[in-house]
Each structure stands twice: as C-alpha cells, then as structure tokens.
Nucleic acid binder design. Structure first.
Lengths: 169, 169
DNA sequence: GGGATCGTCTGTGGAGCACCAACTATTTAT
DNA sequence: ATAAATAGTTGGTGCTCCACAGACGATCCC
C-alpha cells in the first residue's frame, strides 16, 4: 500500500508490517509445477518446455536475429543454436539470412510451427487446470494478459533509483 | 475474445484463429528472467531462489510436515532435507517434532526467517522492476494476488472434463 | 512382534546451461 | 585494402539442480 512510509521521519526499519508483495518466488513455484506437468504432455509432440518458450516468444515478436533472441530468452547464444536446431529439424522455425545484413539469421515461426504450438497449448489444458485450479477462467485470462504484457513489453520506463539509496531498505 | 466460436457448427479444427491462452510458457519465461536476477541479489543474504520459494510457501501455510512440503513444492522428499538443513542452519526455520505423531517434523518459519524473507523481498525490488517493468503497480499487485491464490489455493474445484472429450481440442 | 510411515544420509546419473576456444562469413572502420 | 568487429556455428568442460534408489533409526498402528 504505502511504499513511502518512513520516508519522512527517516525511521530505521520496521520491514515486518506490510511485507512487500514480490511475485518472484510465486512465479518460480508455479512455473515449476507447470513445467513438471508439461514435460510429459509435450513429449509425444517432440517438444520440451523450453522449446515452447522459444516458440511462444517467436510468435509474439518474430523476425529477430538469434542473438536478439538470446537476449530476450536470457540464454547464452551458443545454447540458442542447439535449441533452434531442434526446432528447425522439425520445420517449426525457419532461419533465413537477413537481406540487409547477411551475417544475421532471421528466425521466424513457420506455419507448421504455429500449428504445433497451438496443438501444444491445447494439450496443456489439463495441466493448467491442475496448476491454476484455484482461478476461474476470467482470472486466468487476466493472468495471461499480465504475463504476456510483462513478457513482451519490458520497456523499463523509469530506472528510478528509489530503493538504491542507503536506507535500510 | 470469443472462445466459443465454432462450438455450434461442430466444424473440425481451425486451431489457428484464436490460439488458446496458455500461461505455461510465459510463466516459465518470466520465472527464468526473475531467477537470474534474484540469484545475485539473494547471494549476499545467503539465500538462493529455491530457498525463497520454500520460505514463501512456509509463510503462506506453515506448520506442515516436510513430506507435505515436498508435495507442495513437488520436489523429492530427500532433497527437501538438504533444503531445510540450509534454512535451519541459519535459524530461518524450525523443525519441531509433532506431539501427536513423533515421527513427523513440523516445519515452521522462525521470526528470524520471516524477517529475512522480508529483507529478501525488499532487496528484489529492482529485479522485479526490470522484469515486470511493463506493468504498473496496480497490475503487479493483481498479478501477485493471482499468483498467490493459484499457489496456495489449488482446490481444483471442478474437474469438469470439458476438454477431455474427443473433440479436436 | 511385524509392517508401514517419516525423516535422514549417501550416492548415482541425467539434464540444463554458462563459459571458453576456434572457425567461417560478413560487415564496418581506417 | 586491410584490419577489426559482429553473427552464427561447433565442440568441449564443468557446475548445479534434481530425481531416484538403497539403507538406516525412530515411531506408529495392528
């Protein structure tokens, strides 16, 4: 509620009363639960969770070089190669040389890839039902919308150094 | 928008038009991004991301046996031991023998643990700002609330076999 | 007493992934 | 034109996470 408490009196701490609502741990927890279920569901489709992440990112913002992709996925670019090799072997993505910079490989989802991704998402319905069972459809949609925006947007509007000061927190 | 399109005509497929909104991949993606940043931030506090997950779960629903904890975290119970050893070594949790079943170790967050957890969440502010930069405070709170409910609740109210039928999806 | 259960310890193996080094193809700067 | 920087690829190394199995003591239940 109030992140500004204590700013005025310069009182030292009292971090207990309103615990900061950080989503990190919950994100981690739910992602794990989901991933465990996804693995078995995705296996018959020849995919792994991380393939699905890559495909999803590519669908959201395709046509990027694979170095940019490495930045988005925050993976080492050398490992991206293997990942894309898997996907290209099944014709889910295409690597085309960029016309304006022929060093660059422009990665794009193929029609096949979009279809496979859809199938996978479809197959994950029951897994999601288990993990997000406490949320009704409208809430799940809200969740999706928020996650989607957070994932693609990432504008980092202001790097306001609020918490970077010396204060106890 | 319309998830009910095509339900009436029993047309076969067309999975392309409105792709199912599955949060799994996005969850995975964001959790990874967050975890990468968390590691460096949490290190000076002597914690790792998975410790934070455990502490968060314990704060939400403490006083459980560690086998129950293993079920919640969906980890092997043998690995829970090491995780709790780490936390107990720093007096962030306590293992007390259950009075009614003395085989059981009831795990609970100590005051120290709650404090450390708060500090960690506080320290993660900048990390979260980077990852969830596209969301405003209200949206982040909504996200937190949804994740929290999904994480703790898990009642799996109705196992309505909507999608379990033969239909293409 | 006998069998099942909880927690603990140890070890093993596979998977994910970061990092390093070397190489090619291409662009850009001097 | 030559040098330096960049994009991608390949191969290898090593660390961490984690599931799984085996064995053990303590305890509960029948």
């Amino acid at each position: 509620m109030f992140r500004w408490v204590g700013r005025l009196g310069h009182m030292s701490a009292q971090p207990l009363d309103t615990s900061e609502h950080r989503s990190g741990a919950l994100l981690d927890h739910l992602a794990r639960r989901m991933r465990l279920r996804s693995e078995s569901v995705l296996a018959p489709l020849g995919l792994r969770p991380r393939h699905l992440v890559a495909l999803t990112v590519l669908r959201a913002g395709g046509g990027t070089g694979q170095q940019a992709l490495a930045a988005i996925l925050e993976m080492d670019s050398t490992n991206i190669v293997g990942l894309l090799n898997d996907l290209e072997a099944e014709q889910l993505i295409e690597r085309r040389r960029s016309p304006e910079d022929r060093r660059r490989h422009v990665v794009e989802l193929t029609e096949n890839g979009a279809k496979r991704l859809s199938e996978a998402e479809c197959a994950l319905a029951s897994a999601e039902d288990e993990v997000l069972g406490a949320l009704n459809p409208a809430e799940r949609e809200t969740l999706y919308e928020l996650l989607s925006r957070a994932s693609t947007g990432t504008p980092i509007t202001c790097t306001e150094a609020i918490c970077a000061t010396d204060d106890t927190c």
